[in-house]
């Protein structure tokens, strides 16, 4: 099957698919950046939020950071395998990354269920509103990334569209980077 012109051309010297991912990430920087900047400025203006932040579980946050860093590691190894033409290994490594995503969401579900059962909900106060909004938006990105990764891994296992392994990897690392900033903002600064 022939590919559309837009898929194969490279006006900037960057393959179109990868350039598209950078554009997506540029918009994501504004979305997450705006949200986190808003949180940060309110947090500075409301020192009393430290009392609310004290209720977040640093160990759970740290464990999820470990999970995402590990999933990024397997994603970049998948990219390396894809570049060497080893689609099967790339697919297997992407499946490990999806496992990381599932673990992250599982831990987050447990964490949220515990917090909600203690009465900390999105309407409790400003801190918890930001907490659930920022972490929730991030979790949606984790879920979306894992689903797309499943499709990429399916093709990679058949040695098809191996360049997409890098593309989903770049997105995944960005999701990791967002969490790297969410972790100190929501779990350490108390």
């Amino acid at each position: 099957m022939s590919k559309p012109l837009a898929t194969t051309r490279s006006a900037t010297g960057i393959p179109t698919g990868r350039l598209a991912v950078w554009w997506v990430l540029a918009s994501e920087v504004v979305i997450f950046g705006g949200l986190l900047a808003s949180y940060l400025m309110h947090r500075v203006g409301h020192p009393e939020w430290a009392d609310a932040a004290a209720a977040t579980n640093t160990w759970i946050g740290a464990f999820n950071t470990f999970v995402l860093l590990t999933s990024s590691f397997t994603a970049v190894l998948a990219h390396k395998a894809a570049e060497h033409g080893d689609g099967k290994r790339a697919a297997r490594l992407l499946m490990y990354t999806i496992g990381g995503a599932a673990t992250f969401i599982g831990v987050k579900s447990f964490e949220w269920a515990t917090e909600i059962s203690h009465g900390y909900t999105i309407t409790s106060n400003g801190f918890w509103s930001f907490y659930y909004t920022a972490a929730g938006l991030h979790a949606l990105h984790v879920i979306a990334g894992a689903i797309i990764m499943g499709f990429v891994a399916r093709d990679a296992a058949r040695n098809r569209e191996l360049h997409r392994v890098e593309l989903i990897g770049i997105y995944w690392h960005f999701v990791d980077v967002v969490w790297i900033f969410l972790f100190p903002l929501l779990y350490i600064a108390k």
């Binding site: 020192p47 009393e48 939020w49 009392d51 609310a52 409790s124 106060n125 801190f127």
Partner: peptide
């Protein structure tokens, strides 16, 4: 809001 504080029983 700052003067009121969160308080230990905010939840």
């Amino acid at each position: 809001a700052t003067a009121r504080g969160i308080g230990p029983a905010h939840a």
